[in-house]
Write a protein that binds this DNA or RNA. Structure first.
Lengths: 161, 161
DNA sequence: CAGTAGCCGAGTAAATCAGTCAAGTATTAT
DNA sequence: ATAATACTTGACTGATTTACTCGGCTACTG
């Protein structure tokens, strides 16, 4: 399992989505604004998240993305694996011929290690993180930056151009 | 903290070093043979490991590398951080102005997450891994591939050229 | 049917990875 | 001392990944 900034972007976006999921679909444009992630990059990430059954796309006006499962059923590990697509940690891809036909030191070492990291990340759900008080504060502050309520009639999407 | 193949190479090499450290300095050429890692790449990794006080270089004939500390005092986390050099997980590098002067969601999220991963990896020492039975087997098998005992008088360094 | 918003693919600059090559310098055995 | 050993340093490279843009398409809603 690889742990890179790519995974962080995905987790952050999923957090944002989880926070606002109750009020209906969330647009990528909103997430892009709030979390400062490029819209097109988000599209790529969400394409993978969708293929892995973590989110559902809702098309048309008023559409956006929704979580495909309850917050508590989505772990950090699932998100990272979805965008990294290379779950495999060993270079011998599961076979044990990595070193001249035999199992290498790395095999035992990294298999065990990455399994434990995976288990750890898999034990943390979106729900777990959202319930932390420090997170709650940030959520409230960021809400100010969000596009005003949709039913308001004026989305102001064009306003700053 | 980043988790990539680079870190794995470093950990594997350190494992190999830890295994044979008792018999005196270990050459990078030996590690290169046993673990199938490019010699020049090992040189780069060990330069960083040395700067971070994890290994000591011993020059001259019969030289090589030694652990700078007891096996039990070297954690997986230390090794990975040494070669990745970017311990920092947030993009705002510890400052909290990542998002237009304020703290971003990522900040809380990833700081907590990467701290827990770090703590986890930091709780595993080289000693811990070496004591595992499955590892012991591999060590014994790999020893056959090693350059014959040094005091033998015939290093055969030129033999296969 | 017009507009919103997801969907898809090609393309790209920059960074990182994994490795090579070449020229050193320090140490030790003889 | 001198040669051999072995670490040290730096420049350089191809491949891959990251993060991102652009352009066009499709499905859906009001």
């Amino acid at each position: 399992m690889r742990l890179s900034t790519k995974g962080r972007y995905a987790v952050t976006a999923m957090m944002d989505l989880a926070i606002h999921d109750r009020k209906g679909p969330v647009t990528l444009a909103d997430i892009s604004n709030c979390q400062d992630i490029s819209l097109s990059y988000l599209e790529q990430l969400f394409a993978k998240l969708r293929k892995n059954g973590l989110v559902k796309g809702v098309r048309g006006p008023g559409g956006g993305y929704r979580l495909a499962k309850p917050r508590s059923d989505i772990s950090i590990a699932q998100i990272i694996c979805a965008v990294d697509e290379k779950v495999d940690a060993t270079m011998c891809s599961g076979e044990e011929n990595c070193q001249k036909g035999e199992r290498c030191l790395t095999h035992e070492l990294w298999m065990g290690l990455s399994k434990r990291i995976y288990d750890f990340l898999d034990s943390i759900s979106l729900e777990d993180f959202l319930s932390r008080p420090a997170i709650q504060e940030i959520i409230e502050r960021q809400d100010g930056r969000r596009v005003p309520a949709r039913s308001d009639g004026n989305t102001m999407a064009w306003a700053d151009e």
